[in-house]
């Protein structure tokens, strides 16, 4: 479904701030894989997702989605394959537009936008049903501006938008990190529910170790722009937080130093 082949990315090359973000990263995902990604600060987790999404170009290497070489495809054209949820709840939605208008934008992802109506009455009715699933009361606020919603509500809406048109690949970049624990749990539950329902191939970056272990069928750990641990299936199911810390120490030669990592 996704193949990342020997991808390199260097930020600020030739300056004192030079940073090798991705150092020959390779990763291959099968259809239906739900991969959780952990790693220290600057390990290259977000850069990896941004390279897949085409936010900025790779320096070297190739990226294939569903067999198609998308390495040089601009971000808005790759969007037809991808659903994305960002860390910042403000990023995924248009604050000055209505809830239903945001959903209507998402429902046209990957389609040619024409002079047909941007939203129809029939769509509105459908969105109402979809929003009921979130159980946040948004189904009664269809015409409210998204800027009025809380962070958790916006993130849930972004998740809905990302999966409204079934994506080939769902990219979640620490999408619960900015939320309070209760809301984070709710958004994560919702994520699992949607991913399982639609059998979505998913990459989820998280700083929560127990989430990384509990969710998904595969776990990768990154360090210095490379994958240092890749476990799946039975092996992943048996892992504990202590195992992860130990494995990180062995592979990286240092403690997993990150004040944002949650162990519990």
């Amino acid at each position: 479904m996704l193949e990342i082949r020997e991808v390199y990315k260097v930020f600020n090359p030739g300056t004192v701030n030079e940073k090798v973000a991705l150092n020959g990263l390779s990763l291959s995902l099968k259809e239906g894989d739900f991969v959780t990604v952990i790693g220290g600060n600057g390990a290259g987790k977000s850069t990896m997702l941004n390279m897949v999404a085409g936010v900025c170009p790779v320096d070297n290497g190739r990226i294939y989605i569903d067999g198609e070489d998308v390495t040089h495809l601009p971000e808005h054209k790759r969007a037809k394959y991808l659903g994305r949820v960002f860390q910042d709840p403000m990023t995924g939605t248009a604050a000055t537009m209505q809830i239903d208008e945001n959903l209507a934008l998402a429902s046209r992802r990957g389609l040619l936008r024409t002079l047909k109506p941007g939203i129809t009455a029939r769509e509105r009715a459908g969105y109402k049903e979809l929003l009921k699933v979130l159980d946040l009361g948004l189904e009664n606020r269809l015409t409210a501006k998204v800027g009025l919603l809380s962070g958790g509500q916006r993130q849930a809406l972004t998740l809905l938008m990302a999966t409204l048109k079934k994506p080939k690949l769902l990219l979640l970049d620490e999408h619960t990190a900015a939320l309070d624990p209760k809301t984070a749990r709710k958004v994560l539950d919702l994520t699992e529910q949607i991913v399982n329902r639609d059998h979505l191939t998913t990459i989820m970056i998280t700083h929560n170790m127990s989430d990384a272990l509990r969710v998904g069928n595969r776990l990768i750990m990154m360090n210095n722009g490379k994958i240092v641990l890749d476990v799946s299936g039975e092996e992943k199911a048996r892992l504990t937080t202590a195992d992860l810390l130990e494995k990180f120490k062995i592979s990286a030669g240092e403690e997993l130093a990150n004040d944002r990592i949650l162990l519990s």
Partner: peptide, 11 residues
């Protein structure tokens, strides 16, 4: 309204 969101939605 939001450049990042727009591009993510294929605009």
């Amino acid at each position: 309204a939001n450049l990042n969101m727009s591009r993510a939605q294929g605009i």
